[in-house]
């Protein structure tokens, strides 16, 4: 009969009208600034650069290998590797820019980074009063501590830290072996003040750099660890150039 369907519809809307006062399944609005939904751990927004230790720029894990720059689909990353006075690469980015207006948060830079240096942020309140503010993020703005990474992606970060620690342990062992071999080879060598890399790596990366290593001075971005220089001080340096890319194949631009 004419009107039955209409009445049924009215019944449904009435049910929803009443239900929206008592049924949580029927009032799903999150009143945003006061209430917030919990972000899932996998949530991703624009990328940031992870640094270990306390020094934002010096502690960057990034070695300016430019893989992400090449792989970035919209090509929003711009990197200039840093060089020392002699013109040799220092394995540090001099310029690391991400054009936020171009970036599409696809996470490919994170996937391709062999050094776990770039990660996805969860910061979504990024509105600015000026329309051109903070569209191009510089290295300083991008750098965020490992503790922050731990905070936003705890499970993933723990995994990454464990992996890094494992790699570092292996590298240290290798370096130690190499050093011992060198020592054995050069029997007349002076017993240097090479730091013994025997400290077990902490699984939580919130501690300062676990292994003190001098940045590689070699020109090639090869993931081989250079011999440890005995002159460095462990306190000031942070771990960079974590050598082994555990996930993927050969790094290299």
């Amino acid at each position: 009969m004419l009107g039955i369907g209409l009445l049924k519809g009215l019944g449904v809307t009435a049910k929803n009208l009443v239900g929206s006062f008592h049924d949580p399944a029927r009032l799903v609005t999150t009143e945003y600034p006061e209430q917030r939904t919990k972000l899932p751990e996998n949530y991703r927004n624009f990328p940031f650069l992870v640094y270990d230790g306390t020094a934002a720029i010096d502690g960057l894990r990034c070695v300016a290998c430019k893989i992400c720059e090449v792989e970035c689909p919209p090509q929003c990353i711009y990197i200039i590797p840093d060089r020392d006075e002699k013109g040799r690469p220092t394995k540090k980015p001099k310029v690391f820019d991400i054009d936020i207006s171009v970036c599409m948060s696809c996470q490919i830079c994170v996937e391709v980074c062999p050094f776990d240096a770039i990660k996805m942020d969860q910061q979504y309140e990024i509105a600015e009063a000026d329309r051109f503010d903070r569209l191009l993020l510089k290295r300083e703005a991008l750098a965020k501590p490992n503790s922050y990474y731990q905070e936003i992606h705890p499970a993933e970060a723990a995994q990454v830290d464990a992996m890094l620690a494992e790699a570092r342990r292996k590298a240290d062992a290798k370096a130690k072996a190499a050093a011992e071999a060198a020592a054995a080879k050069a029997a007349t060598a002076k017993p240097g003040a090479a730091n013994p890399p025997t400290r077990p790596p902490a699984p939580s990366g919130s501690t300062p750099a676990t292994a003190a290593m001098k940045p590689a001075t070699a020109a090639m971005p090869e993931p081989a660890v250079p011999p440890v220089q005995p002159t460095q001080t462990p306190a000031e340096n942070s771990a960079t150039g974590n050598p082994v890319a555990p996930k993927t194949g050969t790094p290299g631009a």
């Binding site: 809307t13 929803n16 009208l17 239900g19 929206s20 006062f21 029927r26 009032l27 799903v28 609005t29 009143e31």
Partner: peptide
């Protein structure tokens, strides 16, 4: 308000 409530909005 009523439209909102019917549509499960406040």
């Amino acid at each position: 308000k009523v439209l909102g409530r019917v549509q499960n909005r406040p």
